[in-house]
Nucleic acid binder design. Structure first.
Lengths: 247, 247
DNA sequence: GGACGGCAAATTGGATACATTATGGCTATT
DNA sequence: AATAGCCATAATGTATCCAATTTGCCGTCC
């Protein structure tokens, strides 16, 4: 689908981002411009624009005259990204509370929390419910970030999602207790924000994200292959939101 | 000077970054590719690569088929960036303390603190000492960030420096009391890190950065013109460190 | 037998030429 | 006279071509 107001280079960047995050281009692998241009059906010029963008985004490594390589992420990298995401999202809570969340935001959070409640009401984790859960989770976090009204904050959090596995779209959907507790955090965060208790919301959010990171890392350490398989099979598309709206 | 292992595009990106941060290209102004290419003495291809990079870096706004504009930064933007820098640098303290700063880092921090002490020993702010002070300040902050050993953290903090006025290279060098207190923070941060008191160091750093931001914003509100003049005249070069080392 | 040096193929970087899209001014019509 | 639509111009986006750098291979020399 060709979107008006988008260039071929923009499209290539989006496609490549998805390919990398989906693991189609393996980490460390060198990116051949000619091959890739042919594969994508475009010339090298827009492709190179896209590559430069992705390199600045941190998905590719670049070395002059030696081209681009897919950045490889170690478990250490994943940990370090969670260390950042946790403080950024906590700060989002603080700022949102300080600004005072408008009713629309509070209502939306409540509605999302209820959606989560419904999904968990059965007492088990239905695989079929995962996409809905993921949508709920992503929206919950994004709603708070947007409520903070800090463009750079949103940008940085988006960038942390460029690292495979770190996205809040990645969910370990196999332990009811853990998911339940995680959703309890959502309850408490929403309530704290309603009462403008920024520090409290921030503390919960920090732990909420940090724990998710710890858990993921533990799984990856225990059995990297199984965890990866599980995550890839349960990972949803990662539609990096376009920066420009059509007028 | 032509550095081996750097492409023309890289050089153009660096040059443009400096031009924008120095205010040579005014905010909101449209960037004419032909003109600029001629001005810089290169063709549009590497220029466009550089533009794409700077846009991803957040210094330029891009709209398909309408080209690039210099991003304009409001006082609100500056505030929002300080809100991020403060938590990121605080987190750097936490992580550095948790990892345990090696002696080399502690020694360096001590040495930097002493340099600051010497500059302030006279009891007045000598304009001639500003460059040394700035170097000291930048190194102090960078040393801690590097001690945290979290690549993304460093990257993000670097990016906050892409916003005019937010850099730790920008210093309000006109109030001895304030500078003295700020340096006292450095003392306490270094000491806390020596004792592996991460939370304490983080708290001080957070306030250290937040207050600098508040102060700057206050000045900009009071008398934008005067503050800008003062800052530009006292601002040093902003050498964005190259990401790759020659082997 | 190993290592250094040079040559050739492949790949990246940059310049130029072409296509496509916005933009401003002009005319014609209401 | 004002506005809508069209055309010309200018600027951006893409493709192709050429140059420069890397890289792997082979031969020679130590």
């Amino acid at each position: 689908m060709i979107v008006k107001g988008q260039t071929v280079a923009d499209g290539a960047a989006t496609t490549l981002r998805e390919m990398i995050l989906a693991g189609q281009l393996r980490p460390g692998e060198r990116v051949h411009q000619d091959q890739l241009a042919e594969l994508l059906g475009l010339s090298r010029t827009p492709l190179r624009t896209a590559l430069a963008t992705l390199a600045t985004d941190g998905l590719l490594d670049y070395e002059a005259n030696r081209g681009y390589r897919v950045r490889s992420f170690s478990v250490d990298t994943i940990r370090s990204v969670f260390e950042i995401r946790s403080v950024l999202e906590a700060q989002a809570c603080r700022i949102a509370a300080r600004l005072g969340c408008p009713d629309s935001v509070l209502a939306r959070l409540d509605s999302l929390v209820r959606i989560g409640d419904d999904i968990l009401a059965s007492g088990t984790l239905d695989p079929a419910a995962l996409p809905d859960w993921r949508r709920m989770n992503v929206e919950f976090h994004e709603t708070i970030i947007q409520a903070a009204n800090n463009p750079l904050l949103g940008e940085f959090v988006s960038r942390t999602h460029n690292v495979p596995m770190v996205s809040d779209r990645v969910i370990l959907w196999d332990d009811y207790e853990i998911i339940h507790r995680s959703h309890d955090d959502h309850h408490r965060i929403a309530r704290a924000l309603r009462h403008s208790e920024g520090e409290r919301a921030a503390a919960i959010m920090n732990e909420h994200v940090s724990f998710a990171g710890d858990l993921l890392i533990e799984r990856l350490r225990e059995d990297p292959e199984a965890a990866l398989q599980h995550l890839i099979s349960t990972a949803g598309a990662v539609p990096n939101k376009p920066k420009k709206e059509k007028k």
